[in-house]
Design a protein around this nucleic acid. Structure first.
Lengths: 343, 343
DNA sequence: CTGAAAGCGCTTACAG
DNA sequence: CTGAAAGCGCTTACAG
């Protein structure tokens, strides 16, 4: 005999119907606020249900409605990187604050690579575990998009809207943020600026790199270098080492996240390059991490929780039959701290 | 007309039955490896299902089996703290690596406080969304335990096993780890040692504090102080400031996580107290963060992903009818880095 | 306004 | 070895 018996009798709609002396249909109508029951009956049923602590069986409801009341998020990153990247937990917390309002659950999967994220999406969809998906970390030529469209899976993109507009997107103007960072550095007198970018396959990396080149060009400057990385501390350290060892050493470096910027500070110190007096550093993401290091990091800051909440809201609207409608979140703003100084 | 029609016809067991020329019962038996179909029929059905890309509808299956094939994790921490705490994402990644093997999904909820975590648990259970739960951050007198037991909800505790042993636990010997840290510091000649603890309401905080006192006593030493905090950077900074301002300033501080240890380094620097020469620091959690700061942090290190995997395995065993069986994970080991030195 | 019934897509005793 | 049928707990047209 097992300790836990799944077959134990649990409260169902029939118990309420019996107790109220009506049919289960009437109970269902009352509970779902549909016409077909008198107000008196409705309120009696409602109070009985509340009193007995009844809640709908999600599987039964899902089967009838063809709706799981669940959305999925697949994150394709290595666990090590994820760990230090404060972005994701904040984003998830934001998602859930909004999902909770409509009692929608969040299914989460962390996978190491892209093919496996596609597998996860297909599995969830085929099993009808989710009603829709949140798609992050878009690649330049992302195989998930045609898949989602051909399978007609409701999804919201965390990133720039597609030209065809079939899928709603929640995004912020990365190009403007990068431009602000460059302008800020140039304003401080920097002319030799390098960029340590994230994964080159990611679309927003490409957007940022393009914006970096454009902003530099507008000031009549040529970038010292643009180095691609995988967002890890190690890659940030390695890139910084290479940049500082070169003959045309930059006087300022922008990093695509806070973790790499921290690595940059660390390597500079090891090499005896003073931050910010000999080298200015800007972090592309803001988090408590930026205030933990010395010197504290000037960063591009945004409300990541709100970003998550907006994403959830956009997906829920779509799931409730709304037309695909993208949302532009606030642009990250530059928060000057100790890691930047005049050149 | 909505862009997405949930009612679109999807592949079901009937389609396979029709194609194979058998009853849906036979298909179900074949698919689930039960006796009652010949080998020839079974393999034919299997290959048809695979070819058509059929996957069971989770709601239908869940309703029949009274099993959601889903487990839940509720994290009760503020989003801000969670963000910088690398522990959780690693733990989740570990959980999922194991859950994926049995196609069990993970439902995640991040809530700000304890009452709301109880709400989430009750909702999930009442709606039968989960088959079992993972319970973290146990309080000394945790209201969730009696609740889970009275409702007979299968759950695994991430923390010390209860004396009654009704609920399996996955844990590691925190007391031994704290003792190792104290022994290490005393071995370096430190006598004035303080402890900056985590949330005092958490059971493992109390276990560690007790172990700290015991270890100090064994060396014939009295702790300079034990300061309770909420794990945040701010609290770590505040505690460090107070400790360093006091007349009986410690020569070494152990912190209950990496975030606060980082704050400690930062404050010490501000106050002109040299780490490690005037102050040794040990972090109670290890992560890339500990290698990001300067000086790098001596830390108590463990394989958090493995911890998550062991937790998932323990829960799955319970859900499959196994007797509650706790698992002791490896004890954290001290990794000496730059933040500790002889006194 | 109300009730009886079919259906969602599976699993599983129960007859043949 | 196989098939027809009931049941899981809901929702929702369809008659009264």
């Amino acid at each position: 005999m097992s300790t836990y018996d799944r077959r134990v009798k649990r409260l169902t709609i029939s118990d309420i119907a019996e107790r109220a002396g009506v049919s289960i249909g009437a109970v269902s109508f009352a509970l779902n606020g549909r016409p077909g029951v008198s107000e008196a009956t409705r309120s009696r049923i409602l109070s009985i249900a509340a009193e007995m602590g009844w809640r709908p069986n999600a599987a039964a409801r899902g089967l009838s409605e063809s709706r799981a009341h669940t959305v999925g998020l697949v994150i394709a990153r290595s666990a090590d990187t994820l760990g230090v990247e404060p972005f994701f937990m904040k984003f998830i917390a934001g998602l859930e604050s909004e999902l909770a309002l409509t009692r929608t659950a969040l299914l989460l999967q962390v996978v190491p690579d892209h093919p496996r994220s596609i597998e996860a999406i297909c599995d969830w969809w085929a099993e009808r575990r989710v009603d829709g998906l949140i798609v992050m970390d878009l690649w330049a030529d992302d195989a998930r998009l045609p898949l989602l469209e051909s399978m007609r899976i409701p999804a919201v993109l965390v990133g720039r809207p597609r030209p065809d507009g079939g899928m709603p997107a929640v995004w912020s103007d990365d190009a403007a943020a990068v431009t602000e960072a460059v302008d800020f550095l140039v304003g401080l007198g920097h002319q030799r600026i390098a960029r340590v970018a994230g994964l080159p396959a990611l679309e927003h990396t490409q957007v940022r790199t393009a914006a970096f080149h454009a902003a530099m060009a507008r000031h009549g400057l040529a970038p010292v270098a643009v180095v691609d990385t995988d967002y890890t501390w190690a890659a940030g350290a390695e890139a910084t080492r290479a940049l500082l060892a070169a003959a045309d050493r930059p006087t300022a470096i922008t990093f695509d996240n806070d973790v790499m910027a921290t690595a940059g500070v660390s390597v500079a110190r090891q090499l005896g390059v003073g931050v910010p007096h000999e080298l200015s550093i800007i972090a592309g993401d803001d988090s408590q991490l930026c205030e933990m290091v010395f010197p504290t990091l000037t960063a591009l800051s945004r409300d990541v929780q709100a970003y998550g909440a907006h994403t959830a809201r956009t997906l829920l609207r779509l799931l409730n039959g709304g037309a695909p409608q993208s949302f532009q979140d606030a642009t990250a703003r530059l928060v000057p701290r100790e890691s930047t100084a005049p050149c």
